[in-house]
Amino acid sequence: MIVATPPSATAGVHPFPHRDLLAIADLKPWEITLLLDEAETWVEVNRGLRKHDDRLAGLTLINAFFENSTRTLLSFEIAGKRLGADVVNMTVGASSVKKGETLLDTALTLDAMHPDMLVIRHGESGAVALIAAKVGCPVLNAGDGRHEHPTQALLDALTIRRRKGDIAGLTVAICGDILHSRVARSNFVLLASLGATVRAVAPPTLLAPDLDRMGVEVFTDMDAGLDGADVVMMLRLQRERMSGAYVPSTREYFHFYGLTAARLAAARSDVLVMHPGPMNRGVEIDSIVADDIVRSGVSEQVEMGVAVRMACLDVLTRTRRGVAGW
């Protein structure tokens, strides 16, 4: 029995008892639902002409990205600005990490500037939690190594929920480089938590071991993995993994694991196709599928990303803003 209803009516139970958002694995199903419900309210605002709210006015948001990012950084910057926060971006090229400063010294330096919210991306698993333990403000994990990327899983869930109505009971196939993917790990946990049947589809070299222990069904044959799927989520294949180390070539990878219209026919006719971007067209996904305006949810994912991040920034700062009941 999946309990996805927040026990908000229960006296004494905090609806979101977390200072930070570091991993989906830390969240109860109703806490995930709470974030999705909050995000839903921002979707309409973002579609309007005046996309602004001043609830975070006067608060400082630092986006500290120790790993390259364009899309996620932009999404967080827009989310912060639409809520009225003062948003500052720090990217690795401009940081003192290059000058030999340790990660924790950098964290303490950021903390001394009294941010009200830190959004952090780092290339090593666990690095964001390490920083969070040393700073005095809420920390949001924008991706740590191959561990988790919680806002990506939330925006994926919101996209699915809006298209399909409910996540429970759906069959979701996550295909591609599972081994190195934090997006996959966050999605495995979230989708299983909300009652979906989750499949991992990849060549054996790109699967992570013991996925069955996370409640995931494993397929190395893509046609079998897509059979009857309600949602197909493609993962990006990093360029450095394409040529020999993990798969022989992009040509062979596309032949067996690329998402084509023919292969997608095995899935349900109303299948939703997703990709966290940026896409490698002709490597993991065919352009015809990527641009299918009915079945592709890729643009919607980007749109939901801003709404989800607004919801997370709002919820995580409620305690320090003194919102009643938080």
């Binding site: 698993s125 988790e148 992570a208 071991p209 013991d210 222990r213």
Partner: peptide
């Protein structure tokens, strides 16, 4: 070491 914990934590194993 390869296993459930390394997979969950996203550690090279």
């Amino acid at each position: 070491t390869t296993g459930e914990f390394a997979t969950r934590l996203g550690l090279p194993a």
